[in-house]
């Protein structure tokens, strides 16, 4: 069956910090099953956009709909309950809490009986987390914290996974590993992914489609492979 309504539709979205507007009317869409990448430089508004999608940054104009339902005014917890989970920039784990508690809190809004089996699944995905599950999460290395942040978001069983700079601060071998896991989640679990990255090459390589954001506005959009070949993108973001 073909549905014309995308999973996530963002229209003319505006957001501001006080009087300074960070997003000047961003429009984009993410269809179910896609991996969509949003690339752009520092301060282009990538993190602001993701935070606005999760409802932790107020929007000042435009509209947001998820699964055909308007969520512009929904609280952050209502959006998590609806199926939007975010792996925030800088990982933002609960450092003093045990690793297992971090994961368990990812399923905070769930009441079903499959939480324990999902926990085991996360552990099979990231075995290092299982070994140290009773330890405080703050003791993990940067890469391990990134795994934990992804695992925590997955514990809510999201329909749409938002990832903010998952490769930031990671060694190249870990970057590859993280992107491999993102692709696996998309392929095997059917999780739709909206990925924000400064590492444009890695992000566009795995993306179905991509957008380039510049100073709060979408500048270019297209298929992931097309953007990788685009002259402007190559010059500005790929360093070639």
């Amino acid at each position: 069956m073909h549905s014309t309504e995308p999973l996530l539709r963002v229209e003319a979205l505006r957001s501001a910090y006080g009087r300074i507007e960070a997003l000047h009317g961003v429009s984009l869409s993410v269809a179910a099953g896609e991996i969509v990448a949003l690339v752009g430089g520092n301060g282009a508004g990538k993190t602001t956009l993701l935070r606005t999608l999760s409802g932790v940054q107020p929007m000042t104009g435009g509209s947001l709909s998820f699964q055909g339902r308007d969520i512009s005014r929904a609280s952050p917890h209502a959006r998590v309950a609806a199926g939007i989970a975010q792996v925030p920039e800088g990982r933002q784990i609960f450092a003093p809490l045990a690793i297992e508690d971090n994961l368990r809190l990812g399923a905070y809004l769930r009441k079903d009986a499959e939480i324990a089996s999902d926990l085991e699944r996360i552990y099979s995905l990231f075995p290092v987390l299982k070994e140290r599950r009773r330890n405080p999460a703050g003791g993990l290395s940067g890469g391990q914290q990134q795994m934990l942040a992804i695992g925590r978001a997955l514990m809510s069983r999201p329909t749409l996974l938002l990832l903010d700079e998952p490769s930031m601060g990671l060694a190249p071998v870990l970057v590859d590993q993280v992107f491999e896991i993102i692709q696996r989640l998309n392929r095997e679990d059917g999780v739709t992914v909206f990925l924000v990255e400064q590492n444009a090459f890695a992000a566009l390589s795995i993306a179905t489609r991509g957008y380039v954001i510049e100073t709060g506005e979408i500048a270019i959009e297209g298929k992931g492979s097309a953007l990788l070949a685009d002259e402007r993108v190559r010059e500005a973001y790929l360093g070639v």
């Binding site: 999760s54 952050p76 998590v80 784990i93 609960f94 809490l97 809190l105 978001a153 809510s156």
Partner: peptide, 23 residues
């Protein structure tokens, strides 16, 4: 208790607490 841990999580990182759905 999970709600007790949610309080600790809110204390540790309010942004992350909101992102996992804690009110």
């Amino acid at each position: 208790t999970l709600i007790g841990k949610a309080v600790l999580a809110t204390a540790a990182n309010r942004l992350a607490a909101r992102l996992v759905g804690i009110n």
